[in-house]
């Protein structure tokens, strides 16, 4: 009698319980055995993000970079991810074992960033690009993140806590209203550190398939 009353509800509940078990719980259980590997220089891969990099990751999330940039490289022969130099190999589950929240992303209004730190290690480039993407990438439709920088005119004193080495010159043709130099602020610096740390070039064995 009760079963007849609740039959519909029970059946419906079972459908969703089945899919969450099959698609989330079982794969998660399959990933449990993943361990980081030791690189030639003694460091480990992958490593959890900490310090500046973790702070930068929070900025990446807060600014919503995921809505235009993915962080996953598809295999050779499926799309042109590797030929576009977005990575040296495909991404595998182990690359993400410490990622919380995940930032895989499903949109490429801009290029994939899974290994941006590998193909673009220059902090200067990242700073100029974040300050105004049109400096380094003419025609880009990425927003400016000028609020991650302190703008300086010639002769301005350094902002508190910045070193002379942090100052970045804006190429002359992009200088506006006397602003000639930039210093990334705390968040900007952290974000650049995080972007430079995005690197999936270590050849994990399961990535060779």
């Amino acid at each position: 009698m009760l079963l007849k009353k609740l039959g519909l509800s029970l059946g419906v509940f079972l459908t969703i319980a089945a899919s969450v078990t099959g698609l989330v719980i079982i794969p998660n259980w399959q990933f449990q055995g993943h361990q980081p590997m030791r690189k030639a220089d003694g460091t480990q891969y992958p490593l959890p993000y900490f310090g500046e990099q973790a702070k930068g990751r929070a900025v990446y999330i807060d600014q919503g970079c995921i809505y235009c940039h993915s962080q996953q490289v598809r295999m050779k022969g499926y799309g042109a991810d590797i030929r576009r130099n977005w990575g040296t190999r495909r991404s595998v589950p182990r690359d993400y074992m410490y990622h919380r929240p995940h930032q895989l992303g499903t949109m490429r209004t801009g290029p994939d960033l899974a290994s941006i730190g590998h193909r673009q290690p220059s902090a200067t480039w990242h700073a100029l690009h974040l300050y105004d993407p049109r400096i380094t990438s003419p025609g880009s439709n990425m927003p400016r993140f000028n609020y991650l920088f302190t703008e300086m005119r010639d002769g301005d004193a350094l902002p508190v806590g910045a070193f002379p080495g942090d100052v970045i010159k804006i190429p002359p043709q992009f200088q506006n209203s006397g602003i000639t130099q930039l210093v990334p602020n705390e968040r900007g610096k952290a974000l650049i550190e995080y972007l430079k740390a995005l690197n999936q070039s270590f050849p994990l064995p399961e990535a060779q398939q």
């Binding site: 989330v24 990933f31 589950p93 074992m97 919380r100 895989l104």
Partner: peptide, 19 residues
């Protein structure tokens, strides 16, 4: 539970997210 409360990480979390 699987994403913001952190029951699973990484790729399993991505699956939970898109599920």
């Amino acid at each position: 539970a699987c994403t913001n409360l952190g029951a699973v990480d990484g790729v399993a979390q991505a699956i939970a997210n898109w599920w």
